[in-house]
């Protein structure tokens, strides 16, 4: 039994799959393009349609999809272990509701500000996710002894409901076109047509993944129980703090890039666990890689099935994820 070899082999297999999907996805789309022309640098950029379709329309959305998919899937894994609840998602703790409220306010207040080139809606949604994370964190750590995962879960669920009500209220006050735009944002979209939003989301997601990389064994122990994890050498409170904050911030960054795309954070970790077991040293990286591939594929469906119309990618993930989720529930009971 060589554990290291197994870890490397399995994760490598997932990596190969993710890379293959990411290499293939930009080559297909609603229009057929010539790759030779797209990469022909003798053709001036301004007249090279194939290159612009490849590099402006497709590649950024594949990269955004991969980044968002990897982040949501990994954050889902971390939060499921932290809350010891297989049905937790990156959105369970209010992050997406906060982000949606932020985006909603940006739309209805017609905010046009931008910071370092990031536009109003992503900015406002990220701010909203920070507010939600802050509130939940403050509530959960108000009890004297560390972070209570029960309070975390309750506070998150309550905040979700409360923010959803606020969203409806703002939506009600907004005019029709604005409300529609905000609702559309909530269905998720990856057609960023630009590399800058991706680059802007990267640092935070990178920091979060660095934190995730330190966690797998701790997450295994937390899955077995906080008390026994403590007895086996885990500093529970700092570990829970790190898990909650890094997963929440990464989710906030991902949502501000692609909108609150649902179901990735729950389907992917479960599928991965069904394939490789529950060892987080495999589940965490494999979920990130599989999440990247999965969202890129869902987005491929979103942009091709009804072309030239777009289906919101969140609708595609929900159409696949909803039935899967139900199957999971039935299978559990």
């Amino acid at each position: 039994m060589n554990i290291r070899r197994r870890l490397i082999t399995v994760v490598a297999a997932f990596a190969v799959f993710a890379i293959a999907v990411m290499l293939w996805a930009p080559t297909v789309g609603s229009t057929s393009i010539s790759l030779a022309r797209a990469f022909d640098r003798t053709i001036p950029w301004d007249s090279n349609v194939d290159a612009q379709i490849f590099f402006v329309a497709r590649l950024p959305r594949v990269l955004a999809g991969a980044l968002v998919g990897a982040t949501l899937a990994a954050a889902g894994v971390v939060l499921q272990a932290l809350l010891r609840n297989p049905l937790a998602t990156p959105f369970t703790l209010g992050v997406s509701a906060g982000a949606s409220l932020g985006a909603m306010l940006a739309v209805t207040m017609k905010l046009e500000l931008s910071l370092l080139g990031i536009t109003a809606i992503p900015l406002a949604s990220f701010a909203g996710s920070l507010v939600a994370t802050g509130i939940v964190y403050a509530l959960a750590s108000s009890q004297r002894r560390g972070l209570s995962t029960n309070v975390l879960l309750l506070a998150g669920v309550t905040l979700n409901a409360f923010f959803s009500a606020l969203i409806l209220f703002v939506q009600y006050l907004a005019d029709f076109a604005e409300a529609l735009r905000a609702i559309r944002w909530m269905m998720g979209g990856l057609d960023v047509a630009d590399y800058f939003p991706i680059i802007a989301a990267l640092p935070l997601i990178f920091v979060a993944f660095a934190a995730f990389a330190m966690m797998p064994r701790t997450l295994n122990l937390l899955s077995v129980g906080a008390e026994s994890a403590a007895a086996k050498g885990v500093d529970i409170v700092p570990a829970q703090r790190l898990a909650f904050l890094s997963a929440s911030l990464a989710t906030g960054a991902a949502v501000s890039l692609g909108g609150p795309i649902g179901f990735i954070g729950i389907i992917v970790p479960h599928l991965v666990r069904l394939m490789v077991g529950s060892d987080h040293r495999i589940v965490l990286p494999a979920s990130a890689l599989f999440g990247a591939a999965f969202l890129v594929l869902c987005d491929l469906v979103a942009r091709m099935v009804m072309s030239p119309l777009e289906i919101p990618v969140g609708v595609v993930t929900a159409l696949i994820g909803g039935p899967f989720f139900l199957w999971l529930l039935v299978r559990k009971s």
């Binding site: 554990i3 499921q80 272990a81 010891r84 609840n85 297989p86 064994r217 295994n220 122990l221 937390l222 899955s223 077995v224 129980g225 008390e227 026994s228 007895a231 086996k232 050498g233 885990v234 666990r273 077991g277 529950s278 060892d279």
Partner: peptide
């Protein structure tokens, strides 16, 4: 944890692990 081990009253797993995986978790410290 390298000097004191604890057997808690109840062990309720959030996810499915094999017995050997549970035992290997003892090596964490």
């Amino acid at each position: 944890a390298r000097q004191i081990a604890v057997v808690p009253q109840e062990t309720e797993l959030a996810f499915e692990y094999r017995a050997i995986e549970i035992v290997l978790m003892g090596r964490h410290p």
